[in-house]
């Protein structure tokens, strides 16, 4: 899922400074699960903003809502009536949700309340780690189900490098060496011969390097 975290409150207050009445919109999908932008976070953040603005002598009215999902146009209708009454929307969805809000309600500013961080999962309660770089050319079948693009700090396809020490990456003792993990998993699977292969240079054109991406599925088009 998409992992995000809330922007510093000071940054949010600065964005909202010109406004007296806004919609604060959460999202019921990924950011609810990672507890950055769900219904509960909408309530907490709305209170924080109200208090800060009250203390600054510049009160703000905030309408609270949480859409089923902000990443699909059909759910934008849930915010349609509410948007009529406000000057702007503070979206605490991922960047996709903020952009869909901006696109749908074109004449009103949409501000991001979160920083969209990465694609990953909660490793333990309160700890989220990256697992996928959405590079568009999956190699997990070669690397024991562990992604070297997202998890190796150099995105090496032929690792490990000399920076691998005691299973950790040279960038930080808190970061596992992806290629140590790949080695361990391939060993467990009896597939260590995979490491004898030289993986050729990656085709980054399927990643962001080929420009903004788009998939057209003719079989799904109406």
């Amino acid at each position: 899922m998409i992992i995000a975290e809330q922007k510093p409150i000071e940054e949010i207050l600065e964005m909202l400074a010109p406004h007296k009445k806004i919609l604060l919109a959460g999202c019921g999908a990924c950011v609810t699960v990672c507890q950055a932008g769900g219904e509960k976070e909408v309530g907490v953040l709305a209170s924080q903003i109200r208090v800060a603005r009250q203390e600054a002598g510049n009160p703000i009215e905030i309408i609270e809502t949480t859409l089923t999902r902000q990443c699909e146009p059909e759910f934008m209708d849930e915010a349609k009536d509410l948007m009529n009454d406000v000057e702007a929307v503070l979206s605490i969805a991922c960047g996709i949700g903020v952009q869909l809000m901006a696109q749908t309600f074109y004449d009103k500013p949409a501000y991001p309340g979160l920083n969209t961080s990465f694609l990953g999962f909660p490793e333990e309660h309160g700890v989220f780690t990256e697992r996928c770089a959405a590079c568009g050319n999956c190699v997990l079948h070669l690397t024991g189900g562990i992604c070297p693009i997202a998890r190796c700090s150099k995105s090496l396809l032929n690792g490990p490098c000399g920076g691998s020490q005691d299973g950790k990456c040279e960038i930080s003792k808190d970061v596992d060496c992806a290629w140590q993990l790949i080695y361990d998993r391939l060993k467990a699977l009896g597939k260590l011969e995979n490491l004898a292969e030289i993986i050729p240079p990656k085709k980054w054109i399927t990643s962001r390097d080929g420009g903004p991406r788009k998939i057209v599925r003719e079989d799904l088009r109406i």
């Binding site: 240079p201 990656k202 980054w204 054109i205 962001r208 390097d209 080929g210 420009g211």
Partner: peptide, 13 residues
């Protein structure tokens, strides 16, 4: 220029 217009279109930009 972005790499995808050149002769190594698969390069990382």
């Amino acid at each position: 220029d972005p790499p995808n217009i050149g002769d190594h279109p698969e390069a990382k930009e």
